[in-house]
Design a binder for these strands. Sequence first.
DNA 1: GTTGTATATTAAACATGTATTATATTAAAC
DNA 2: GTTTAATATAATACATGTTTAATATACAAC
Lengths: 180, 180
Amino acid sequence: MSLKHGILGLLNYGPTTGYELDKSFKGTLNFFWQAQTSQIYRELSTMEKQGWVYSEVIIQSDKPNKKLYALTEDGKVELNRWLRQNSIEEDIRVRDPFLVKLFFSGEVDATTNIETMNQFKQCCQYALEKIEESIKQCDEASKVDKKAFYWGMTASFGYYYYEMCIRWADDTILKMEELL
Amino acid sequence: MSLKHGILGLLNYGPTTGYELDKSFKGTLNFFWQAQTSQIYRELSTMEKQGWVYSEVIIQSDKPNKKLYALTEDGKVELNRWLRQNSIEEDIRVRDPFLVKLFFSGEVDATTNIETMNQFKQCCQYALEKIEESIKQCDEASKVDKKAFYWGMTASFGYYYYEMCIRWADDTILKMEELL
DNA sequence: GTTGTATATTAAACATGTATTATATTAAAC
DNA sequence: GTTTAATATAATACATGTTTAATATACAAC
């Protein structure tokens, strides 16, 4: 997995500009992958050199000109290669800065740690509410486009994830309170 | 969070060499943060230039010489600044290549996707078993060192996480089978 | 004696991620 | 008329992550 593959996947839904890509990235994949705007433009130009995408300049009079990007045959081949490639072992790695900090939190007083866990819980509750909405949207979209089924599965993961985090936080807060 | 902070945290338990650090990193933080050996050595030398750590060469006759690294006052200050800094919003971001791929899996036939989900589930079951062991170890260690309480909380998160993944995978496989 | 394993560190190249800034146009708001 | 928001892209610098391989010693196994 690299950002390039995420971009190939989005471009596969149809030609777009860097600007639109950036927005749709932030509206969808952003839950489980983040990318800076500048990174998207840079990757697009690298991918064009690689021959995975090609671009066409669209002259606009009412707005600034833009570049419309589309997949090449090579790009489609690479997208399908990546999608079909069996690589779960590498794909399921967790990277969680919050847990790294928690690991060393013996250096910090328990009261502060409980406060932090409460903040963590609140963030998860907020995320859960937002995901409920996106699950509804995916259910609607699934009626029209069968690809939305898989979008829904990722949203479902988010629901399971944050619900689990809240339970874990509750359990952890109880154990932390025993330390006081 | 950066790798430097993870290294500061480990060095806080006492002076060590890059070699030992690499091994203890891979035995602990590796569940939620990964680092290459070469990256650890590079970060150590950067951190020495920054004044967060200092090193001393230990001449050995039976084994190759080694460099013993230890925290400086500045390093301790930075570790505590990071630990006490309130940054949950940035810390809780999820990055999951498996979900990115799943998002685009409408391009792949359902049978293959079910197979992939089964592999995912197996990986999670294996991870769960390993975490059960490390929870036991943390419980033992907690009797001697109270810092181990927080190690145990991260292990507990791992348990909750993989247990949740398995339930989600079961649910998702059922829904996928309806597509056939 | 050669092979493998553990100990120990470094370098170099390249890919990816983050942060900041610059540029330019149009339309709406104040 | 000046500011703000939206549209649109590009450039720079630096930090971090990944890959590969070079270098060197000692001990045990075969």
